[in-house]
């Protein structure tokens, strides 16, 4: 029933709004790709609703700190809506699909066809849920290393500092990123997804699961998952330590996005429970910390240019 309703609603939207626009623009060969993107956008909206329903009551229940600067939180909300409607993932997917066709065309001409995960591990072929979990684990591993790179490379930290400069961290903060940082993230994530061959229908769902976990981990809530739970899933406490004042830049801990096991394995975990430090980047310029969306973006570009020029 729900499935039918979803198909009818997306079908109507595509037939009456998106496809006529594509036709008018002379882009009908992208129809299937745009139809796939609808799932991104709708799952994105659905994701915001779920995150709000889960996180807002938690933040009201046991906040780590009082919301002193509501304007700063509103800026993070702008980031969330811009990001989760899936414009950047769509662009990355389209761009990567074209690159992938060239890359795969070249590979097949060289006599090489990359295997799918199911070919490497045949039991996955018959167990869609198990396959989904494997994809999540692999993609989460990729996200851990991307996050390490964001802190490790000075030019990348120049952009990522926008995310860390929020002193009023809430579940909205997850999407507070510089657009260039978002593009890099989308290319990284989408590229890895294409490399391991995630079924297109599952891609939005995987994105949704990861995003739910990430938003919750940023929530302004005094919540720890206990001795074992802290080692299984990234909690608001675990991630707040990563956002702590002493954890900025290359000195960071707790890089994991969903599964803390990566921090455990690679020696970057901090499991001290009961620690809920204040967040932010010491000495960061005010525009990065409390400016509006546009000011923060501009400041990010400036910092990046300065870093690349070797003056920072």
């Amino acid at each position: 029933m729900l499935q039918d309703w979803y198909a009818a609603a997306t079908g109507w939207l595509f037939e009456h709004v998106l496809q006529p626009a594509l036709y008018a623009l002379g882009l009908m060969d992208w129809a299937e790709d745009l139809y796939g993107w609808l799932d991104f956008a709708l799952f994105g909206l659905f994701g915001i609703a779920v995150v709000y329903a889960v996180c807002r009551p938690l933040e009201a229940w046991r906040p780590v700190e009082r919301r002193a600067d509501r304007r700063a939180v509103r800026t993070d909300m702008v980031y969330t809506f811009l990001s989760r409607l899936g414009i950047l993932p769509l662009l990355a997917f389209v761009l990567l699909a074209s690159l992938q066709s060239r890359w795969e065309g070249w590979l097949t001409e060289a006599g090489i066809m990359p295997p799918t995960l199911e070919e490497l591990f045949p039991p996955l072929r018959e167990h869609a849920l198990l396959a989904l979990l494997v994809y999540v684990v692999v993609l989460d591993f990729g996200e851990y290393w991307r996050h390490r790179a964001q802190h490790g490379f000075r030019w990348w930290w120049a952009l990522h500092a926008i995310h860390h400069s929020q002193r009023q961290m809430t579940f909205w903060t997850d999407d507070r990123n510089h657009v260039l940082d978002d593009v890099l993230a989308a290319l990284w994530f989408g590229g890895l997804a294409l490399l391991i061959g995630v079924p297109p229908g599952q891609f939005p769902l995987i994105l949704l699961l990861l995003r739910l976990g990430e938003s919750l981990s940023h929530a302004n809530v005094r919540l720890s998952y206990g001795r074992i739970g802290e080692r299984l899933l990234v909690s608001p406490r675990f991630h707040r330590l990563h956002h702590g004042l002493l954890s900025a830049g290359a000195t960071g801990k707790n890089y994991a996005v969903l599964l803390p096991v990566w921090d455990w394995i690679f020696g970057t975990a901090d499991f001290r429970r009961g620690q809920f430090p204040p967040t932010g980047v010491p000495g960061i310029e005010p525009a990065m910390e409390s400016g509006g969306w546009l000011r923060q973006q501009w400041a990010g570009f400036r910092r990046l240019a300065t870093t690349l020029a070797g003056r920072a």
Binding site: L2, Q3, W5, Y6, A7, D39, F43, F46, A128, L129, L132, G201, L205, L208
Partner: peptide, 11 residues
């Protein structure tokens, strides 16, 4: 009897 995640999300 569809997978739970598809049922719950209408996919």
């Amino acid at each position: 009897q569809a997978p739970w995640w598809r049922r719950s999300l209408g996919r």
